[in-house]
Design a protein around this nucleic acid. Structure first.
Lengths: 138, 138
DNA sequence: CTAGAACTTGGAGTGCACTCCAGGTCAAAT
DNA sequence: ATTTGACCTGGAGTGCACTCCAAGTTCTAG
């Protein structure tokens, strides 16, 4: 999805605007996430402006994965805190991820089921629209 | 999912509490939906209490399908209004449903993709936890 | 050196989808 | 006749996840 990611090894840090562009989050949301403890205090320029490292980008992309799969800010905060607490919490983090993962399966399953039901409804509407089946022509 | 549904042909209408139980919505939410125009004004008892017919239940279950597949209240309002406007809007309703359906496919796809990425992360954590690969034993 | 764009902060405001509440009505049971 | 409980209404309040704002500072291009 991102051809520039390959370059992000020891690249120059990103300004908040660049970070916003790459993640799709607004600068406001990036600050909000940091204030909320989702992102640990990020590097600063001499003049106190944020400079995001490649690892920050990776982490935000991971957060976005959690978010789009339905994790709340509160749960992401818990995860971020575990992460900040270092290697000792790896087992805990694994447990959280597994839990989230299985809930995700459940939700995908439900979505599929509802999609199937919607298809039936759509069929129904299509039949209402076609004036007659028109079998036995010719 | 519901073995009682088969009986709901010409059954006695439901009170709001019974409706809440069957749909999983709260009584407050049922009233809210009605006030918002999602449910058309429902039948009343002599004493002005709501009595939901089987068709109301079907409709609410359909709304719930739209909701769990991510449709906003505002969009459901539009759909409900089309429905209230009768047969002339069938084509419009079909269009809305098709649109929603394809967005749904998109979201399921994205969810799957993110689920796969989470699986990788989980693998990563699992490898961190198992002290050593332990190849070449015996 | 300076103009203007981009950044900083704390805090207020927004939109969504409910959820709760107060004060009142109605039906059934004691 | 009265208590109890389910229901009614309009409207206020909640939690979430941002989003916007004002006033001030810093960065960058000319």
């Amino acid at each position: 999805m991102n051809s520039e990611d390959a370059l992000s090894q020891e690249e120059a840090p990103l300004t908040i605007a660049q970070m916003a562009e790459r993640t799709g989050l607004s600068a406001d949301t990036l600050r909000y996430y940091e204030k909320a403890g989702l992102i640990e205090p990020v590097g600063r320029s001499a003049g106190n402006q944020r400079r995001y490292a490649a690892t920050d980008l990776d982490w935000v992309e991971f957060l976005l994965r959690l978010r789009t799969t339905g994790m709340s800010i509160a749960d992401m905060q818990r995860f971020a805190r575990l992460r900040a607490d270092g290697k000792a919490t790896v087992a805990d983090r694994l447990a959280v991820l597994r839990e989230h993962r299985s809930g995700l399966d459940e939700r995908i399953r439900a979505l599929q089921q509802n999609a199937d039901a919607l298809d039936k409804k759509i069929d129904h509407y299509e039949r209402l629209l076609s004036p007659r089946p028109e079998t036995e022509r010719i």
